[in-house]
Amino acid sequence: MNIKNFTIVIVYLLLLAAALVPVVVVSAQQPTPSDDQVNAIARKLYCPVCENTPLDVCPTTACHQWRELIRQMLAEGKTEAEIKRYFVDYYGARVLSEPPVTGINWLMYIVPPVLFLGGVYLLFRAFQTWKRLGKDPVSGADKPAKPVVGPEPTIGSGLAASDEYVARIEEELEKRK
């Protein structure tokens, strides 16, 4: 289920193998990393020349080369983080699926929550004001609509209440006709 963990384990094992037997089998290649291992990393990277296409589903020759590059780096025992760093160094930050948190990119992550929390605050404050106004007995001349569907204080307290509730709906519908 968890490809990421799987990949980490595999990469770890490869690293371990690389550390243990570097001299003994100089000529023997590491087992070639499988397509799945390559794709697990490729799907987190974006094609540097096409717009908004993840590397694992990109059909161009260039992307094929990049996937082979990932395979080669995996075979060399590079970790996912190292591969990503290499890609960013060579092809720019746009290969990442999210902007790295540096410089102006902070705005990317800060602005939406700030705006949203601002909205929450405004709404909360408005609620407070409205509540006060609601309790205010000095009712304005132009309180439009007393609730059409009136308050349902007994809602949910048994079927009798529901009857009342449906009756009100019916009544309202009759009025509308």
């Binding site: 908004n52 746009r94 990442l96 699926s97 902007p99 990119n105 602005v111």
Partner: peptide, 26 residues
């Protein structure tokens, strides 16, 4: 807000830093 900012930010970034960034699914 999230969607709007995600679409607009790469434009701002490219304009200010000259570098393109991707805002993807994650």
């Amino acid at each position: 807000i999230v969607c709007f900012w995600g679409v607009i930010f790469p434009l701002i970034s490219e304009l200010v830093t000259g570098q393109k960034v991707t805002v993807g699914p994650p």
